[in-house]
Design a protein around this nucleic acid. Structure first.
Lengths: 341, 341
DNA sequence: TACATAGAGCGAAACGTTTCACCCATGAAA
DNA sequence: TTTCATGGGTGAAACGTTTCGCTCTATGTA
C-alpha cells in the first residue's frame, strides 16, 4: 500500500542503489536528484525504518525506562530527553515501571526485543541484575538519578549528599538548632540526602532527637503524617528539611491544616522541584536539581557509548570503565526560612 | 552478534518454519518444543522485532503525540495508556510537541516513518491538516482530550461544557451571584468549559461584568495575574471558577499572597486534576476528569480500528464514521465553597 | 594519444523473520 | 484394502532497505 523505493525506481528508471544513495545523502546528478524528489512527492514516499533498521541493525531508537511516569520530575526529564534525542535523530520508546521491579525487568526485555540502540534507565530495583540481558547484548545503558552498584554502568546524577548538607547548613546558619528531617530511605537518592543532612548536624554538633527523624518513603502520605506528628510534639522543631517533591506536598498540606505559620512558627527547606515553590506561601527555599543538564549529559554520554561500540573502540571484554557524572543541585531563593534565636 | 532463528535451527536441526511456528504459538511435538526452548535459553535468543515487523508489516508499536509531556495531566494519561497498551502487547512511542504545532507535525511524520500501527494524539493544532499523511496511509488515529473538526477522526474526551455548567451551578446553588471566571480560549477544552459556565450564568440570569471575565490561556501566569486583578476590584467576586490545573496553581498562589481567605472571603471551584486539591487549604472542590477511563477507551477504540483495517472491514474509501466518546467529569468534594447571602 | 582517476550508477546479496504451498506419516472411516 | 483427513514438518519466497564490488563515462594529466 505505502510507496517503496521500488516504486521510485519504476517511476524514475534509476536503480535501487542510486535511490538509496540519495536517501542517505550521497552525490547524484542534479537531474536525477530532481527526478527522485518529484517521485517522492507524488508517491508520498516515506522510508520504512523497519527495513532500514533490519539491514543497518540500528533502530535509531532509545529505550527509556522510568520508575514512575506520572510525576512532574519524571515528566520534565522526559521532555528534555526527548528534545536532545530527537536533535540527534533518535526516537524515545518510553516504558513506565510504576515503581515495580518486576515490571521494570519486563520493560527492559521488551525494549531489548525492540532492538533499541541504547537505554536510559531511572531504576526501581537496587540490584543491577535486571540489566544483565542488556549488558550481555552490548547495548549501552546510562542510569539517571539513581546509580547502581555495577562497575559497567554509566550514571548521571545529582550531588544529593552535598546539596542536602548545604540545605541544612542554611537552616543552621539561620540559627536553628531544633531541626527535623522528613525523608526516605527506600531509594538511594533519599538515603544520600539523609546522610548529607546528618553529616552537617554532626559537624555542627547539633543533636537530633529520635522524634525529629522521620524516615519513610517518597510519598505524600509520609510527608503529611510526619509533619502532623512533628507539630504535635511538646518541643516542636523550629525548622524542617523536606526530602522530595511528594514529601513537600504532604508536609505543606499538613502545615496548612494546622494553626502554625511558615516561617514564623516553622522554617522549611525542600529538595527537588521548582514548580512547588510557586504553590506554597511563602515561597519555599529549595535545592533544585538541574534537570535539563542531567538530560543533556545522559544523552551525550549514551550516544558516545553507542559510537564507541559501533567503532569497536570498546575494550576486549566489551566493557568500559563506567563514568559517573555528578551534577550540582543549587539552592533557590525563597522566604520560608526565618532567623532563629 | 545476537542469536537468530538460524542459530536455533543449527542447534536443533529443525527448520526455520518450525521454529517460527513455535515462536508464534503453533503446535509442535513436545520433544521438539523442548529442544527449541533449550536452545533459546542457552543462546539467549530474543525475537528481532524489526525483522518480524518487516514481514508482517506491523510494528506492534503505537505512536503517542502529546502537547506537553511535562505536566501532570499528560503524565497520568501516559501512565494509563502505557498500561493498557502493554496489556495488548503494544509499545508506546511517545513524542512531545511542546505546544508547538510545527513540532507536532514533525512528530507525526517521524512516527509514520517508524511504521507505528496507530496513533493516539492530544493535539496542539486546531486544524486537522497535520494528520493528513496519517490518514492517507490508513493508519488509524484516536484523538484524546481535544477533538478536531474532521469527520474521519475518532476522539475520546470529557464533557467539558456540562461539567463546567454543573460546577458553576454549584456556586450558584450556594447563593453566589458575583461569580468570576478564569479560563482559556486558546484550546478547545477551555472554550467548551467557558461556554458551559456562561450558559449556566445565562440560564440563571446572572450578569457577568466584563471585569469578572478573565479569558487567556492555560498558564500559571494567567491564573496568577487574573486572581490579583479580581482581588483588587472594588466589587470583588464572591466566587471564582478556575479553568484548569495551571490556572488553579497561579490563582491559589495569588490568593495565598493576599490577605483574603478561602472560602470566607472567596469561594473557589476548579477544573482538571485531583492532586492539586491536596495542596490548597482548604481542600478544593473540583471537576475531575476520568483519566484512567479515557486512556482505556482510547486504547480500546484504537485497537478496534486497527483490527477493522487489518480485516478489511473498513469502508470502500478506507474511512469510517468517526466515533466521539464523551466521558463525564465528576465533581469531587472539598471545602472551598462557602454559602453566600 | 594514451592513461590514470574520479564520479555516477548499477546488480545482487544480505539482514532475520513469516508464510505459502507442499510433503509425509499416521490413523480413522469406508 | 483403499481413501481421506489431520498433524507435524519443510523449503523457498517475500518484506524494503543498504552495501559491496563492479562498470562506464568524462575529465585531467603526462
Amino acid at each position: 500500500m505505502a510507496a517503496t523505493i521500488r516504486d521510485i525506481k519504476n517511476m524514475t528508471g534509476l536503480s535501487l542503489a542510486t535511490i538509496s544513495k540519495y536517501l542517505n545523502g550521497g552525490n547524484l546528478l542534479p537531474e536525477n536528484r530532481e527526478k527522485i524528489e518529484e517521485a517522492i512527492r507524488t508517491l508520498h514516499y516515506e522510508v520504512n525504518e523497519m527495513a532500514r533498521g533490519l539491514v543497518t541493525s540500528q533502530s535509531k531508537t532509545i529505550g527509556v525506562v522510568v520508575f514512575d511516569i506520572s510525576n512532574v520530575f519524571t515528566g520534565t526529564v522526559l521532555q528534555y530527553l526527548g528534545e536532545y534525542l530527537r536533535e540527534e535523530g533518535y526516537a524515545a520508546m518510553i516504558c513506565d515501571s510504576q515503581n515495580d521491579p518486576v515490571l521494570e525487568e519486563q520493560n527492559v526485555r521488551f525494549l531489548l526485543g525492540k532492538k533499541v540502540d541504547g537505554m536510559i534507565v531511572m531504576p526501581v530495583a537496587q540490584d543491577p541484575g535486571f540489566l544483565e540481558p542488556v549488558l550481555r547484548n552490548h547495548i549501552p545503558v546510562v542510569l539517571m538519578d539513581r546509580p547502581l552498584k555495577d562497575s559497567r554502568l554509566d550514571c548521571v546524577k545529582v550531588n544529593n549528599r552535598e546539596a542536602a548538607y548545604d540545605a541544612v547548613k542554611l537552616l543552621a546558619d539561620y540559627g536553628h538548632r531544633r531541626i527535623a528531617l522528613i525523608s526516605a530511605d527506600t531509594v538511594i537518592t533519599g538515603q544520600e540526602r539523609l546522610e548529607g543532612c546528618l553529616q552537617l548536624l554532626k559537624d555542627r554538633k547539633i543533636r537530633v532527637p529520635r522524634s525529629y527523624l522521620k524516615v519513610g518513603d517518597h510519598s505524600i502520605g509520609h510527608g503529611y503524617r510526619s509533619m502532623q506528628e512533628l507539630l504535635k510534639l511538646k518541643e516542636r522543631p523550629t525548622a524542617v528539611f523536606l526530602g522530595n517533591f511528594e514529601i513537600i506536598l504532604g508536609a505543606v498540606m499538613a502545615l496548612n491544616e494546622s494553626p502554625y505559620q511558615c516561617p514564623e512558627d516553622l522554617s522549611l527547606i525542600g529538595f527537588d522541584d521548582l514548580i512547588i515553590s510557586n504553590l506554597s506561601k511563602p515561597k519555599l527555599v529549595l535545592a533544585v536539581q538541574p534537570l535539563r543538564k542531567m538530560a543533556e549529559e545522559a544523552v551525550r554520554l549514551l550516544l558516545k557509548r553507542i559510537d564507541q561500540i559501533r567503532n569497536g573502540m570498546d575494550k576486549e571484554d566489551g566493557q568500559y570503565e563506567h563514568e559517573i557524572l555528578v551534577l550540582p543541585a543549587k539552592i533557590a531563593e525563597g522566604k520560608s526560612i526565618a532567623r532563629c534565636g
